[in-house]
Design a protein around this nucleic acid. Structure first.
Lengths: 148, 148
DNA sequence: CTGGATGCAAACAATTTGCAAATTC
DNA sequence: GAATTTGCAAATTGTTTGCATCCAG
């Protein structure tokens, strides 16, 4: 439950407190390098800290997203998923979503090619439409190996 | 309110009936070539046909999506949007979403290049991950001209 | 006629919010 | 000690469903 020392500073600097629930929730992500829903985070954190409520989970996920510690994804399932930002940075990846079983597959192959292409496209779009692009989402939908 | 004759057949063939509410809702899309939310469709259709309920709007949007007459989008706003499929076919496009005002900008520039790139990427991903890709979503997020 | 389609209200599911009590610094 | 954060329950919001009635074919 003891987080890295820089974490305290990171919260402090942003005017927030590094509370026990917040550490516990960050720990869940550290142990689970996957795309977790709020419900899943709640159930996991509940095992060790049964006191933590669902509302706190939602508030914390929101805070961590704002702070840039986790990333928020919407795979069109009807709810959101979150992933440790450091994981994403460690290995930039996009996602394929199985429309039958809901499995989410990360891929980081061909990423250089993809990033290069997107960078060019974003530059052209920005210029032509005077739209400042900050972010993108690319999802592929289909059937995973098991579901075909 | 009189739809093209092929519409009747299209419903008939799929085992459905072309009812007044369904025609009215399709009309809304024909008059509004944009990405409408269920709520927006409901409000629009309500002006001419106050009898049509929200549940019918949802059921109809679902049906039309299944029939392929409209396309369903999730821009991460917390609700879905729909667009006439024929519009999308007429001019294949992707979207840029302004994270400040929510405006959605279509772009169809560079589409050939983009489609070509995606086709190649999909082929490589399919092979490597044994994942059968049927569809993709690409959204750019940022600030529109007015919001910068 | 007759089954599919509708309207209404109630049910749902994910998320948010109000507020008093508990924590953090 | 002061202010932020929490837990709980109640409120919201987008969407779905049950069911009696209605309408298209």
């Amino acid at each position: 439950m003891i987080g890295p020392p820089w974490l305290h500073g990171r919260f402090r600097n942003a005017g927030f407190r590094l509370t026990l629930p917040r550490q516990a929730i960050l720990n869940i992500f550290a142990e689970n390098p996957k795309h977790l829903s709020a419900e899943e985070v709640f159930l996991s954190v509940h095992k060790n800290c049964p006191g933590i409520g669902l509302a706190t989970v939602y508030r914390t996920l929101d805070l961590l997203t704002q702070m840039g510690l986790i990333l928020k994804f919407d795979f069109g399932e009807g709810w959101n998923r979150y992933e440790l930002a450091s994981e994403a940075i460690k290995e930039h990846h996009h996602h394929m979503v199985c429309t039958r079983c809901g499995r989410i597959i990360d891929y980081s192959d061909f990423m250089d090619k993809e990033v290069e292409f997107l960078k060019g496209l974003e530059a052209e779009l920005s210029k032509k439409h005077k739209f400042k692009i900050n972010n993108h989402q690319i999802h592929f939908y289909g059937l995973c190996e098991r579901c075909q």
